[in-house]
Structure formats: C-alpha cells, structure tokens
Simulated scan of single mutants.
Amino acid sequence: MLPAKTDVLVVGGGPTGLATALTLARRGVEVTVLDQIDHPPVTSRAAVVHAYTLEVLDRIDAAAPLVAQGLRAPRFTVRDRDRVLLAVPFDRLPSRFPYALLVSQSVTEAVLAERLAEHGVRVRRPCRLTGLTRTDDGVLAEVDGAPLRARYVVGADGMHSTVRQAAGIGFTGPTDEESYVLADVRVRSTLPREEVSLFLARSGPLVWASLPDGVVRLVAAVPAAPAEPDRAYLQALLDERGPAQRPDQVTEVLWGSRFRVHHRLADTFRAGPVLLAGDAGHVHSPAGGQGMNLGICDAVALGTALSDVLAGGPETLLDEYTARQRPMAEDVLSFAAGLTRLATLPPAGRPVRDALLRLLGALPQVRQRIALRLSGLSHRERAPG
C-alpha cells in the first residue's frame, strides 16, 4: 500500500530514479519510488559507465559492487573498417577509476536497487502517476487515482516524462529523430575485448563493446531497424561496417531491439517543487555512451541538493542544481550530435576526416583531452563537493 505522504516522490525506477532515491535514503530522507512496469527490465541499452560516473556512484557506496560485475576497458578506438583512426587511452585518467566499465544497464539497476533496499526502500510496481497538482506545501500526486502528498517530486520517468508534461515544462529540440538497432550477441572476432570501438561507416556509426560472459553489445544507427534483429541482419551490419580483412562472425543473438531518439532538452529542470533528472530532462543519440551517465550524475546532484534543503538549507540549492546540470546536458547533447555528424559524413569528406583523426591521434595532449571528455571528468569542476 502506498503511503499517504512522503518527503520526496521519485517517479521512475531506472538508474536515474534509483540513484536519486539512494542518495536521499542514505541521508535519512523519506523517499517513495514508483515505476509503471511490473518488473525491472533484464535487457537495456546502456552498456558503459564512465570514470566520472563511477566517482559519483562511489559517493553513494554503489561503485565497488558495480565494478566487481563489469569489464574494465582501458581505451576507446575510432575505426574505419580495419584502420584505427584514433585510440583514446583511459588508463591515464586522473581518477581512481581509469577505465570505462562495460556492464549492462540491468546490472547497474540491480546494484542500485540492492543498495536502496538496504535502506528500507523498494520500488513500488506497477504504479502509474495519473495526476500532479501544486499545493501550498508541495505537491498532491495521484497514483493510479489515489492521493499521495509530497514536498517534492522528481521526474526520472524518461523521454516521455509524465512529470515533465504535468509540470508544463517545455521539451525542445529538432523534430527529426534517429533510429538505432541494438543487440547483445556472441561473435568470433579478432577485435580486442578490452576496448570499445566506434566504426565510422558510410551508412552510419557502429559501436562494438564487450560485456561480461563473452557477450558483445552492438549499437548502430540505421534508417529502419527490425523490431527483433536476427543473426542474418546483424551479420550483414558487421559485414558492411565492421572489420573487413578478418570479419566478425555472429554465432548467437541473445537479445535485440530497436529504438528511436530525438535531441531534446527541457526548458528548465525545476518548476517549484517539481524537478527533472535524466532522460526526462535531456535525450540525445547514444554516441559516446553519455546518456545514462549524465542521468546518474543528475541524480546524485539532485538528491544531495534536496537532502540539504530538507535539512534546513536554502531553496536556492535547487536552482543551483538546474543552473549547473542543464548546461552540462547542453554540452553532452552538442558532443553526441558532433560524434554522429562525424560518423555520417558524405563520402567526399571521409578522407579528410580520417586524415584529421589520425593527425589528432598522434598528439598525446589531444588524446588526453578526448579521454577527459568521454569519461565525463571534464565536468568534474562543475560539480559540488
């Protein structure tokens, strides 16, 4: 049974919602988490946790159990078929986590949920937010028609956020959308398992990343993907975009799907007692693996600010949250869009692009700057604490 009231209502039980709730619960805040689906998904698209995100997760005691279940990738490569155009080292990052951690989003969610349960909080499923009204002392939410009073509401409910729409917050950006296929497969491959590879192909980018247990995650921009891509489809994709001299051979498809994304940004991350985090506030292409990472960083920053306000701190801390995180989201959107444009240059521009990437890749300071950008550590100075 739902409580009649709570300090903070978090709508959305994905990584962003879980990390927000965990940050709050660890500081003694009464928090209620809702999600509209019956069970946590066992398949999900995010597959990399970057160094700065691991630092943020470490603040809420969730980094170590996640690292224990993932693969450490010490470098990221940009390739054109068999040529390595740029190799970005992560092992020189100024961090306790000098790598990209390759792990399924479902594992990330499970770790966060387990930590949250240790503080006596579980996601309430299935529960749907059906109404949201501002009051003098917070918000009156309707959950499947039943009232629930909260001092604050966090919308961590994704791109089609009910919270954002109920709060009347605009969500602006280009009207066009990008289509992607993603799949977890087993392959016979000569590619190094300890790195993430981005293949730049005429037809679009392809990301190749190892996961634990010999699984490889494939993500590719395509004009129209099948709902459940089969082995033949994914083999054709690798034949077209992946290694040519020693091509990969798909031996098994464990799971596959498709998704579409826009590049959108909320006009604000705060409307009074209603706050946004993660995909509810920003969505973009998966290029660079930034989406879930930024959402988790939003979550811990927001959970910290809310905890401080509820402990007697000034409400301006919530304005500082949106003032800090929204520009970070703008930066990530621009970065992801730039990577996508780089991958989809017309044939005439490809030789110049490839030559420029090889030139930049020869400069250690440039490689380090790119590593800082991909890892999220370039945002560290904007963060509190």
Rank of each mutant, 00 (worst) to 15 (best):
R341C: 01
E118V: 10
L148V: 01
V123Y: 05
V143W: 11
R260Y: 11
G14T: 02
V8D: 03
V309Q: 07
A299S: 04
L71G: 13
V33N: 01
E228K: 09
L339H: 08
V48C: 02
L85F: 08
L2I: 04
A336C: 15
D137M: 08
Y52P: 00
D298V: 00
I370N: 01
L112Y: 05
L372N: 01
G272H: 12
C297Y: 03
A266D: 11
E240Q: 02
I37F: 09
A64N: 03
A224V: 14
V187T: 08
L182W: 08
R382C: 12
D82F: 07
M159T: 14
Y99S: 03
D184L: 04
M292P: 04
L132N: 05
V84I: 12
R164W: 06
S189L: 11
C127K: 13
Y180A: 02
P229G: 00
G242T: 12
P273N: 13
L317H: 10
A146Y: 01
S375K: 11
P94L: 04
V8A: 05
A225V: 08
A46H: 06
R134E: 13
A87I: 06
D248P: 03
P243R: 06
E195H: 08
P98G: 06
A63C: 11
Q245W: 07
G349C: 10
A232L: 13
P364I: 06
H39I: 15
G158I: 05
E252L: 10
G204C: 07
S334R: 15
G12Y: 13
P212T: 03
A87E: 14
E178Y: 08
R186T: 11
G288A: 12
S189V: 14
F171V: 01
D298N: 04
P223N: 11
V154Q: 01
Q165W: 06
A280F: 08
A343W: 07
S197K: 12
R217L: 12
A225W: 12
D82S: 06
A201F: 09
P126I: 06
L238N: 05
H39R: 15
K5E: 15
V181G: 04
L102M: 14
T322Q: 14
R369M: 02
P15L: 07
Q249N: 00
R149Y: 07
A62P: 07
S104I: 00
D58S: 09
T77Y: 00
S378D: 14
A271G: 13
T304A: 09
L129S: 07
A150C: 00
V196G: 12
V207S: 12
V154K: 00
A4P: 10
L34F: 04
A62L: 14
A362E: 13
S95G: 09
D184S: 01
A46V: 03
H263Y: 13
G256D: 03
R188D: 15
P15M: 05
F97K: 05
R350E: 09
L294C: 05
N293S: 11
L132T: 09
R324P: 14
L333P: 10
G376I: 05
V250A: 09
V332M: 02
S378F: 07
G138I: 02
V181P: 04
A225T: 04
P65H: 06
R186A: 03
P229K: 00
N293W: 12
R260F: 11
L374V: 08
P3W: 03
R202Y: 10
E178L: 15
D230R: 01
G291A: 11
Y233I: 11
M328W: 11
L342I: 13
Q245G: 00
G385A: 12
V309W: 03
D82T: 07
L302R: 02
T190W: 14
